[in-house]
């Protein structure tokens, strides 16, 4: 017969092992589901980015491309990495630092017209540097 304390301990260890493995599996699954991958406008233009999946894209807002709707807050603009540009639509308030010619990171889904329907638009400027994704994008461009 097992010592009752030992038995109690074994039960706990089993419970903990099971719950940790369930939790780990669930976390791993959810991370995959909710990770937004970053794509450059060029990758989107040549069809490397998946359609209908939430993703992020970034680049410079093309000067003169921002169009507003008459009645609502709907807008559209082009985001470019210097080689290609992608059309982005959004409805809502833009962040304070957003403007044409500045870099932006948008999150949203791409439709079959290769237009990105953004649910979030960021104009995030690191205090000391251009956002790393943008920097890396320029670095890799043309290669």
């Amino acid at each position: 017969m097992m010592h009752p304390l030992r038995k109690q301990r074994m039960q706990w260890i089993c419970l903990i092992l099971i719950s940790t493995s369930v939790a780990t599996a669930l976390i791993a699954y959810m991370l995959r589901q909710n990770a937004n991958f970053f794509y450059t406008p060029s990758q989107i233009a040549i069809g490397q980015a998946p359609l209908g999946v939430s993703l992020r894209a970034g680049g410079e807002v093309v000067v003169g491309s921002l169009k507003r709707a008459q009645q609502s807050l709907a807008i559209e603009f082009l985001v470019s990495d210097g080689l290609h540009s992608v059309k982005v639509t959004y409805e809502g308030i833009l962040p304070d630092l957003f403007s044409e010619g500045q870099s932006t990171v948008v999150t949203g889904k791409i439709d079959d017209q290769n237009t990105l329907h953004a649910v979030q638009v960021l104009a995030k400027h690191d205090e000391n540097y251009t956002p790393p994704e943008i920097a890396e994008m320029y670095e890799n461009q043309g290669i």
Binding site: G82, Y129, T130, Y138, E139, Q141, G142
Partner: peptide
């Protein structure tokens, strides 16, 4: 304008 010189000197951003 095209970033060609930037490419030659390996600029990764500004």
């Amino acid at each position: 304008e095209e970033g060609s010189l930037g490419l030659d000197i390996g600029v990764s951003g500004a």
